[in-house]
Design a protein around this nucleic acid. Structure first.
Lengths: 105, 105
DNA sequence: TCTACATTTCCAATATTATGGAAATATTAA
DNA sequence: TTAATATTTCCATAATATTGGAAATGTAGA
């Protein structure tokens, strides 16, 4: 992952509504969750939610698929994996033992 | 770590200059690096750098100490640890094996 | 086709963030 | 004390992000 992609992923997650959406999608697992359900659960109006989902999609942190008139969003674990790997590699370098995921090994 | 702190840490890192500063401080290790050296290495004007360092400090991602007329900044590994742990716990939950730091174990 | 519903786009208002010159502050050395 | 250097604060400007109502788009069922 390049620094530009890392910045974009970090920015996508650096907003409480979006981080909440992402967490909910992680909980939802691979089945994902419809946009409307996300909005209902988090009390976010449709237009606002759509804006945030677009931001997360553009950062590749979520995927979407259509099912009838529903749009089902799901977390993209691969991209999150990439982000965590980036942070672990570039932001713990030289002192990697201090970062918890590695410390656990 | 609460969601508010996670958002603040993510926001602090979600800007290329600041992420570069943090990476440089990680490389610098516990000795840290003077503000002026950071600005020189990254070609960031003093006022701009000071603004970004304040943002990183407020998010607790960097610490600073004075040495004479220099202010030495250093990475706060503990907070980065906390952020990575938060992301690993809340953003990979239920499917934790898909996140690389754990996959490596 | 018509109606209902899900979601997105459009748009404008508001809020937040980023930038950097200039002045202020702080420290050291002469 | 004075001059030099390091950093921060002040400030105005510009850029970007957030919000959500209303209209548009797309889909399913009657």
């Amino acid at each position: 992952m390049k620094i530009e992609a890392a910045v974009e992923a970090l920015a996508a997650l650096a907003q409480e509504s979006r981080l909440s959406v992402f967490r909910l999608l992680v909980q939802a697992g691979s089945e994902g969750m419809a946009a409307g359900m996300l909005g209902e659960r988090l009390a976010i109006p449709p237009a606002t939610l759509s804006f945030h989902l677009k931001t997360l999609s553009h950062a590749k942190l979520v995927k979407s698929r259509s099912e009838g008139r529903f749009v089902i969003y799901s977390a993209n674990y691969a991209e999150m994996d990439g982000l965590i790997a980036y942070l672990t590699e570039h932001c713990c370098a030289g002192d990697a033992t201090q970062c918890s995921p590695i410390k656990k090994c």
